[in-house]
Design a protein around this nucleic acid. Structure first.
Lengths: 151, 151
DNA sequence: CGAAAAAGTTAGCCAGTGCTAACTCAGGAA
DNA sequence: TTCCTGAGTTAGCACTGGCTAACTTTTTCG
């Protein structure tokens, strides 16, 4: 991402007492995941994704979308040319698919837990980026087989 | 936080199609919560909190801790004087207590779900900041009464 | 066709959260 | 007592991701 991860100091891995550094330096990737998900949605719904779709979706300005798309293009997740629609690269599509699956599991899980649809939608947006594979699998298991202690 | 929330444009509320703006502009508050939690921990464990405790805890440099503490002081969460220990204000203590409770619920919930202790610790760090009151209550309910569909 | 509206681009600003480097201050050991 | 070390401070940099403002391009409609 251009900047060294904050757990790297002078090329030497600085083992942290806890796992905070992951949480903070992943912030940019979270935005990347949100964007590729939104782009994939727009393409599947309307055939193409224009910057305006993202402006509406994220409620940010043109300029901000432009900035972010430029960064995603730099990072090899999207391709776009001036005044042309935005498209995903193979890597971008892969990330979008993976993010959406994770998102769906989290949202279904929250709803199954008794959370309202509206809250499940909101909270899953934030939570999905912090759920490890192990926790995701646990959620799938509960959705399929019920809560651990019960039959 | 000094900067206008990103859902405010020229003082007029710009209703978003989804709730992304909350997720992004809350990033600073997440760091604030992590810091006050860590400061409260240090004080309860060692009596005082020095900058070095936070340097070790978060695996960042002195300078970064200094920056962040200055911001927290500006925002009325901590008090400190040059070369003196860091202390929490009433507001800081309140935030720390609340964050820790939420953290504990999320972590217990993950463990009850069958996630390993290590993963529960890591994931709860990230998840706790995105869990609404409703979802937190649902977690408490499941911990107390079991999964909704089961008796 | 031509003008207005919508969409996209560019430039310049700010705040947050990292970093390094170069100080100052406080305390303990020789 | 002096000096070294560790803790704290300050200054200056980079990157992300917001914004406004001013511009160009494209599209749409009368």
């Amino acid at each position: 991402m251009g900047i060294a991860p904050c757990c790297m100091v002078k090329g030497k891995l600085n083992l942290p007492s806890k796992s905070y550094q992951r949480i903070r330096s992943d912030h940019a990737s979270e935005v990347a995941e949100d964007y590729v998900e939104a782009i994939a949605d727009a393409i599947s719904e309307r055939g193409v994704c224009r910057a305006m779709d993202l402006v509406k979706h994220f409620a940010v300005t043109h300029a901000t979308v432009n900035n972010t798309i430029a960064r995603l293009q730099r990072d090899g997740l999207v391709v776009t040319e001036p005044y042309q629609p935005i498209d995903l690269t193979a890597a971008g599509r892969r990330l979008a698919t993976q993010s959406r699956k994770r998102h769906e599991v989290v949202e279904s899980f929250l709803k199954a837990m008794g959370v309202s649809a509206a809250t499940a939608a909101t909270d899953s947006e934030g939570i999905e980026h912090h759920v490890s594979k192990e926790t995701l699998n646990a959620m799938k298991r509960v959705l399929a087989d019920g809560w651990p202690s019960n039959p």
